[in-house]
C-alpha cells in the first residue's frame, strides 16, 4: 500500500468517525444501563425496527453464548419492541425517528455507540435475524473464542452469512415469538458462493446462496453481500465502512488466509426467511429506507415462490457447526 493510499484511507476512516459522532444527536436514551458494563465484557450492538417477535429468542441465544450487555438503537418501532427491550436488565436502548438510510443503514449509529462504549471490548455488530455460529460453539462460550483470539493476537473474526430457509413457501409458516427460527427455516445452500477480493479495502466479497439463485439469476452483481465481520475487538480508531462487510483500518478485513491456509472463521445464520418477511417486504418497498432503496425487498416482494419456496434438491438441512465446517462454509483453522 502506497503512502497516498494509506493517507486517503485514513481520511476516509476519519470521515466515517466524524459522521458517526455527528449522528449521535439522532439518538435519545430510553434506558441507559451502560454503567453495568464491566472490564472484559462482551458487547452486542444492533439497530432494530419492529422486530419484537424476534427479540426474545435473539437475546436468549446470545445470553447463552455469553454476551454480557446489549446496546440497541430502536428506529421508530411501534410494536412495543422498544418497551420490551427497555425492561431487560442487560440491555441499553436509544430511540430515534431519524432516517435509517441517512444513517447509512444504521452504520453511523453503530459506529457511534461502539466509539463511545465499545473501546477495549470484544464487540458483536448484528442484525436481530443473525445468529453467530463458530467452531465448538456447542461446548465453548464466546469468551473462550475471544480469549483465544486475544492470545493469538487476532482483532477481528470473519464469517459467511448463510441464508436459512424452510422447505416450502414462507406463507406456510407461522413464527411464534420466542421460537427458535431454525426450527422452521432449517435448510441452506451448501456450495454456491462466489468469492472475489475487494482491492480497495482488502475484504472478500462473497455473493451467492439462495438469494442469488432465486432472486438475482439475471443480475448477479446486485445479489447481497454475504461476507461479514461481526466480531471485533473494538478500538476507538476503528470504523465500519458499510454494514459489517468491511471496516477500517483495512488490516481488520484480513480475516482469511492468503497463503493457502485456513483462518478460524464462523457463520452467521440468517433467519430472514420467515413468514414475517412477506409483510416486511411489502412495507419496505414503499418505505424505501433500505440499501439501494430497498431493491432487495422489491425482489422478495415481486418474486412468486414455487411449491418449495427457496428449497431445492441440493439444499442441506442444518445439523450443527460441524456440518458447516465439513462443508467448508466455516473453519476451525488453528483452533483445536
Amino acid at each position: 500500500m502506497g503512502l497516498s493510499t494509506a493517507f486517503r484511507l485514513r481520511m476516509e476512516r476519519r470521515r466515517w468517525q466524524l459522521r458517526a459522532i455527528r449522528r449521535r444527536r439522532d439518538l435519545a436514551p430510553v434506558s441507559d444501563r451502560t454503567d453495568l458494563i464491566g472490564k472484559g465484557n462482551i458487547l452486542a450492538f444492533l439497530s432494530v425496527r419492529n422486530e419484537k417477535p424476534r427479540l426474545p429468542y435473539f437475546l436468549d441465544y446470545y445470553r447463552r453464548l455469553g454476551v454480557d450487555h446489549f446496546l440497541f438503537v430502536d428506529n421508530g418501532s411501534d410494536d412495543g419492541g422498544c418497551e420490551y427491550l427497555a425492561a431487560q436488565p442487560d440491555v441499553s436502548v436509544w430511540r430515534t425517528n431519524a432516517s435509517y438510510r441517512r444513517s447509512r443503514y444504521g452504520t453511523d449509529w453503530m459506529n457511534w455507540l461502539k466509539f463511545r462504549y465499545g473501546h477495549g471490548h470484544w464487540t458483536l455488530t448484528l442484525d436481530p435475524d443473525e445468529f453467530l455460529v463458530y467452531p465448538f460453539c456447542d461446548t465453548r462460550p464466546l469468551s473462550a473464542l475471544c480469549d483465544w483470539l486475544d492470545q493469538s493476537g487476532i482483532r477481528s473474526f470473519g464469517t459467511l452469512m448463510v441464508d436459512m430457509y424452510p422447505k416450502g413457501p414462507l406463507s406456510g409458516l407461522s413464527y411464534r415469538e420466542g421460537q427458535d427460527p431454525f426450527s422452521l427455516a432449517d435448510w441452506f445452500d451448501p456450495g454456491n458462493y462466489s468469492i472475489s477480493k475487494n482491492p480497495k479495502y482488502g475484504n472478500l466479497w462473497i455473493q451467492g446462496g439462495p438469494r442469488a439463485r432465486v432472486y438475482f439469476p439475471d443480475a448477479p452483481e446486485e445479489a447481497p453481500s454475504l461476507n461479514k465481520i461481526p466480531l471485533v475487538r473494538w478500538d476507538r480508531k476503528y470504523a465500519f465502512v458499510s454494514s459489517t462487510h468491511m471496516l477500517l483500518p483495512r488490516g481488520l478485513n484480513q480475516v482469511y488466509d492468503r497463503k493457502g491456509g485456513e483462518k478460524t472463521s464462523g457463520c452467521l445464520l440468517h433467519a430472514k426467511f420467515l413468514d414475517s418477511l412477506i409483510e416486511k417486504a411489502a412495507e419496505e418497498v414503499v418505505r424505501r429506507e433500505h440499501f439501494a432503496r430497498g431493491r432487495e425487498y422489491a425482489a422478495y416482494h415481486l418474486t412468486e415462490h414455487g411449491r418449495h419456496g427457496l428449497w431445492c434438491k441440493w439444499s442441506e438441512r442444518l445439523t450443527g457447526w460441524r456440518q458447516l465446517e465439513t462443508l467448508g462454509l466455516m473453519s476451525k483453522g488453528n483452533w483445536a
Binding site: 464469517t159 468469492i195 461476507n227 491456509g261 485456513e262 472463521s265
Partner: peptide, 14 residues
C-alpha cells in the same frame, strides 16, 4: 489446516 488448508476450498477463511 491452518498452514495448508483444504485443497480446492475457497471460503471466508481461505
Amino acid at each position: 489446516r491452518r498452514t495448508e488448508g483444504r485443497q480446492g476450498l475457497l471460503s471466508a477463511a481461505r
